[in-house]
Design a protein around this nucleic acid. Structure first.
Length: 691
RNA sequence: GCCGGGGUGGCGGAACUGGUAGACGCGCUGGAUUCAAAAUCCAGUUUCUUCGGAAGUGUCGGUUCGAUUCCGACCCUCGGUACCA
């Protein structure tokens, strides 16, 4: 049901538009000429429409963008603040932002005043440039194509290529000579300009310099088309460099580079930058892989972008008092494109600036737009006047955010970006939205990601109906740690149900024997001390597993072990029963977050008035954990041969003597020279013998 | 292609800081109980074995007294790759 709450988020667009952080430019989309609709990358299968199998075309259309690149440095640097985030996610985001330092270099197009600008992080290889590569749809390429049918055919063909990076990077590298030459900024040499399918107009300048000797892709391209390969870098150490088999891509020492000969790659960076800057042919530049965020979608189901297009005033933001723009609900969906694009009653309006007739934007927002700030909205959900109020400053940042690993880059980067935008608008405090992050692994079904969009989800209701919610919860938490991906199977659910039944039965039997006396810690026998030691070892492990490691499966396993121990333990003495009571209480407290219903019931049956949900997490009895003897394993040459029991106080010499004297150990060391004895306190003894 | 994960018994997984590989559970096998079954309980369950042991954590190599754990190369697989969200 469409509630109209989400469009409140568009309030921020008004201000961002004024700040220039929202802007319009053209970008390529996948267009199905039969369905007359824009397709998502996912909906393009082998270059064809997923519904009608028509070959998909690339179309350049005007779209709205958010200037996330203005925040690239902040998004990169603030990753350091996120020590509650998994390292892998921070690495992925840093790589995605992809900050690099390099040079922008201008190659003058021969017979024209035009400059072709390229960006490179390897100016040390500049003297090895033997051709330039430009995007097929580069203006220079389009111009030349008018008189070059072969080039035009190539451009047409590239128009059919899928837009996704994976498709571009794995496609056969192909190109056509444009016939144009450009002059090398230092030597003045004429290098040919090729149009190539692996250079994208939307990446950087749409042109790259090619150094076949020192870049593998350029190397393969040069081989394919018989272009020159010119070695300008030599290994500085013992590395092998054989240009007959592949490019040498490491840094080294410059050769065949005129006055730069002999410099290291690092030294040449400054030298070359200086010369180019002096001659106005290039400059140092920091570059990012990150591109601006395209927020336009040509779909109906989404939040309308609050912009009015006026013939005279251009794009004008809808004034704040006219927000939110609501999506009309009386639409005719005919399967070809967004219905609001053919609804004058929706798009006809007057310009907020000049009052003349104008058209409302019919593109809607990317759904990532709203999911980038909903966490903040949760602090004030019933506020109908504004996006957020003071409560967001009180509650944020989110203490623990949980989401699938598939969101490691896009959603989590957009949310971080949005938080900074809202911070700069005074709507929230702090630099980052999520203090701690847990990224769940994928749940797979038949080997592929289980997701709403794929429609291959499994409803846990069937499990709940058959076994109850406690069993369903316990089973899911026990299957694997949450960070790991997991092939869905409910085969083993039986075991979780059995465990809960066993816990129930054992507790009832225990209660039926009557109430317990107080524990008297001073005169417990060794067996009872052992039970208590195990109880508190488990409390300690479960606290760590749940609180720090988030490995609920091992926490549950430890509790199962404890129940196994006390179930096998047969001691109906007063103190015996008191120790059992203590263990049972800890088990129930530890399980209560996972299986709340059964624990609520059992807690009361054990004689407590307070609800288990209101109880505190169990404390650890450090004294119960102490032990006077410890088991050490004994290895001979790294192989386990025996175990010895020693006092925790025993020093190294005593431990060595005991280990050597052990019957089974002597079998393996008799008559051999002892070379070394390694004692790892509390762990093992390893006797290294000759032969 | 690139970035980030993962690969351990028949299966899900455990081994957290380089120190007992296979915890816990599923399944399976045998037994107890039962007229019988279900449920429950007990025992066993990596492979090979001359019963002393030996081999074994995707593959190959390395470091180490000792490697699932560290290093190098590779294979397979999952997620992301900017319009699936």
């Amino acid at each position: 049901m469409y509630t109209g709450i989400l469009p409140l988020g568009t309030m921020v667009v008004h201000r961002l538009f004024e700040k220039g952080l929202v802007y319009k430019k053209t970008a390529a989309v996948n267009w199905c000429p039969v369905d007359k609709t824009v397709l998502a990358n996912e909906q393009v299968i082998n270059g064809c429409c997923w519904r009608c199998d028509t070959v998909v075309e690339k179309r350049e259309i005007p779209q709205w963008f958010m200037k996330i690149t203005d925040y690239a440095d902040q998004l990169l640097n603030d990753l350091d603040q996120l020590d509650g985030w998994p390292e892998q996610v921070r690495t992925m985001q840093a790589n995605w932002i992809g900050r690099s330092e390099g040079l922008q270099i201008n190659f003058k197009v021969s017979g024209s005043d035009l400059d072709l600008a390229v960006y490179t992080t390897r100016p040390d290889t500049l003297m090895g440039v033997t051709y330039l590569a430009i995007a097929a749809e580069h203006p220079l390429s389009l111009k030349e194509a008018k008189t070059n049918p072969e080039l035009q055919a190539f451009i047409d063909e590239c128009g059919k290529l899928e837009t996704s990076e994976a498709a571009v990077e794995t496609a056969d590298k192909r190109g056509v000579n444009t016939g144009v030459f450009a002059s090398h900024p230092i030597t003045g040499e004429q290098v040919p300009v090729w149009a190539a399918n692996f250079v994208l107009m939307s990446y950087g300048t749409g042109a790259v310099m090619s150094v076949p000797a020192h870049d593998q892709r350029d190397y393969e391209f040069a081989h394919q088309y018989g272009l020159e390969i010119k070695k300008v870098i030599e290994p500085a150490n013992e590395e092998s460099c054989d240009l007959k088999t592949s490019a040498f891509t490491n840094k080294g020492r410059l050769v065949n580079s005129r006055e730069f000969d002999g410099l290291t790659s690092e030294e040449s960076f400054d030298a070359i930058a200086k010369i180019l800057e002096q001659n106005n042919k290039g400059e140092r530049q920091v570059n990012y892989r990150l591109r601006d965020w395209g927020i336009s979608r040509q779909r109906y189901w989404g939040t309308p972008i609050p912009i009015i297009n006026c013939a005279d005033c251009g794009a004008v933001a809808v004034p704040e008092d006219k927000l939110p723009v609501r999506l009309p609900e009386d639409v005719i969906v005919d399967g070809s494109g967004s219905p609001i694009k053919s609804m004058p009653e929706f798009y006809q309006c007057s310009c907020p600036k000049c009052g003349r007739e104008a058209e409302r934007e019919t593109d809607t927002f990317d759904t990532f737009f709203e999911s980038s700030w909903y966490y903040a909205r949760f602090t004030c959900p019933e506020n109908t006047e504004s996006m957020l109020d003071a409560r967001s400053k009180h509650w944020l940042p989110v203490d623990q955010y949980i989401g699938g690993i598939e969101h490691a880059v896009l959603h989590l980067l957009y949310a971080r970006f949005f938080h900074k935008l809202m911070r700069d608008e005074g709507l929230v405090d702090g630099d980052e939205p999520f203090k701690n992050l847990l990224t769940q692994g994928m749940v797979l079904k038949d080997g592929v990601k289980m997701s709403k969009s794929k429609g291959n989800t499994v409803d846990p209701q069937a499990l709940i109906d058959q076994y109850g919610a406690d069993t369903a919860r316990l089973f899911m938490m026990f299957a694997a740690p949450p960070e790991q991906s997991l092939e869905w199977s409910d085969k083993a659910v039986e075991g979780s149900n059995r465990f809960l039944k066993r816990l129930w039965r054992f507790t009832i039997e225990h209660i039926e024997k009557g109430t317990c006396v107080e524990l008297s810690l001073d005169n417990l026998c060794d067996d009872l001390k052992n039970i208590r030691r195990q109880t508190y070892k488990v409390v300690s492990k479960v606290s760590d597993d749940i609180g720090r490691r988030h490995t609920f499966n091992t926490a549950i396993a430890a509790v199962m072990e404890l129940l196994n121990t006390i179930t096998k333990f047969d001691d109906d003495s007063e103190q015996g029963r008191a120790v059992i009571q203590e263990a049972l209480e800890k088990i129930i407290l530890m399980l209560s977050p996972i299986t709340p219903h059964i624990c609520h019931e059992l807690w009361q049956l054990l004689g407590h008035d307070k609800w288990v949900v209101n109880e505190l997490w169990p404390e650890i009895d450090e004294i119960a954990l102490l032990q006077d003897k410890i088991e050490l394993m004994v290895q001979v040459n790294g192989k386990l041969r025996s175990k010895i029991s020693v006092s925790t106080e025993a020093d190294k010499n005593v431990v060595e003597e005991l280990a050597i004297a052990d019957d089974n150990v002597s079998k393996f060391i008799d008559g051999k020279e002892i070379r070394k004895i390694i004692v790892v306190p509390g762990r093992l003894v390893n006797i290294v013998v000759a032969g």
